[in-house]
Design a protein around this nucleic acid. Structure first.
Lengths: 245, 245
DNA sequence: GGAATAGTGTCTATGAGACATTATTTA
DNA sequence: TAAATAATGTCTCATAGACACTATTCC
């Protein structure tokens, strides 16, 4: 007679459950020229042929979802992660049985933030997978474009997460090089919130409490040389509240 | 020759992906006697036989994860949802290939908040499934008990989510009847944050801005009659910041 | 009366927001 | 010189936090 330990592999495996394909979808953000951009792929096949979609792909048998998200960031979005600082975190999981008409796919959406100096977006080499990836302005896409599957919901969730999180953390710095000026950081806030200018003086006072001054200064075009900072505290307390409207 | 639309069901179904079982796990909270409690089940079978675990179960073929979470709240935790106000939201998804030694299971964790009047916890009828469910104090369990699988991570994530969310929303009211007093609400905050008393006077001033006074009063034991409120605004701005320590 | 609670009042310190000012750079 | 930016200063208003005080209820 089998011991209890031996039996558990057969007896205690549940009998009735759906077998689903596990996927990841990516909301990849970067800021250039004061505008928040995201990576999109143009679908070349049905369903939703011709529509914009978020990059994504299936989780491999030995991977967890976060690992798959990093891999797809290189493969599907075509990003060279050796050349760009990146931050990836889990967003939410979409499990509607009908969300993909071909088969049941549960997708763990992830938020990815790419560092840029604010002047150029990271290059998107066309990956091994089908469609070419491109950067598009997030607020334009949400206002005008059709998105495949439930990717409009996912993109909206990614934007909400980022817009909310920068109120009480320095997550906005993930969209910048490790060292940055207060002007760069303020432009990131304005791009994410799609808002008119935040007062530079008040912004400086608020943020310097959580930043580390490197002692160095840089000049980028007009204006006095700006101090260069790194992040000291990851949290802002009390938070910086997003202006209404 | 098949049209593109006919082909997509065969050609474009991806070839290599892991087939996983999709499950939900539940972090179910309620407050009694000033203490935050959660529902646990005692595992009767391997693996982790004898350990505490969170209630959960598999997502059925026609369900999405949220629907499955509501169903398991009744079946596995044994709650009568006709008798108790409840709130369920998605927490995070756990996808480590090794998290269940029997097979690959991706679990979408959910946070569930049960309303109580603060005097008694909701009854947990033993469900159709194996183990009897029980209420245990959350901070005691986190300090002392072993939890099965990655359920300690999940419980911690649930507590962090709740503790953080009540800073800037009135989500704490989901742990109370639709109508409540400020004393009841303050006790919920103290239970969730596991903190010494919040100043009653300052708490009143802060909260009344987001609440609707019903005009009625109640007396529960000693003290002057307390005004009865309902929630008016779901958001607290600026937030109520959790005391340090 | 004593104890616990409800609700309001008071005072201070902090910080947000609006705006001005000065210095430094490029065109 | 003009324009843009950096950084700091000033003023006002809102509010968090500490605490006092009164009123109301039960024991």
């Amino acid at each position: 007679m089998a011991t209890e330990e031996e039996r558990f592999l057969t007896d205690y495996v549940p009998r009735e459950y759906p077998s689903v394909a596990l996927a990841v979808d990516l909301v990849v953000f970067a800021v250039t020229a004061g505008t928040l951009h995201a990576v999109f792929v143009r679908r070349g096949a049905h369903p939703f042929k011709g529509s914009l979609a978020l990059p994504g792909g299936f989780v491999l048998p030995e991977e967890d979802a976060l690992t798959a998200a990093w891999r797809e960031l290189e493969e599907e979005a075509g990003l060279d992660l050796g050349a760009h600082r990146a931050h990836v975190e889990q967003l939410a999981t979409y499990t509607s049985p009908q969300r993909d008409p071909r088969m049941r796919v549960a997708s763990v959406a992830h938020l990815a933030l790419l560092a840029t100096d604010g002047r150029a977006l990271p290059d998107l080499a066309t990956g091994s997978d089908a469609a070419a990836a491109e950067w598009l302005p997030v607020y334009d896409v949400l206002a005008n474009a059709d998105l495949a599957f439930d990717h409009r919901d996912i993109l909206g969730a990614g934007l909400d997460r980022l817009a909310g999180k920068i109120e009480y953390t320095l997550t906005a710095s993930r969209l910048l090089p490790e060292e940055f000026t207060l002007n760069q950081l303020r432009r990131v806030y304005q791009a994410v919130w799609n808002t008119a200018r935040l007062d530079a003086g008040n912004f400086t006072r608020k943020m310097t409490g959580a930043l580390q001054d490197t002692g160095r200064k840089v000049t980028r075009g007009k204006g006095a040389p700006a101090a260069v900072f790194t992040v000291r505290d990851e949290y802002l307390s009390p938070p910086l509240i997003r202006p209404a409207g």
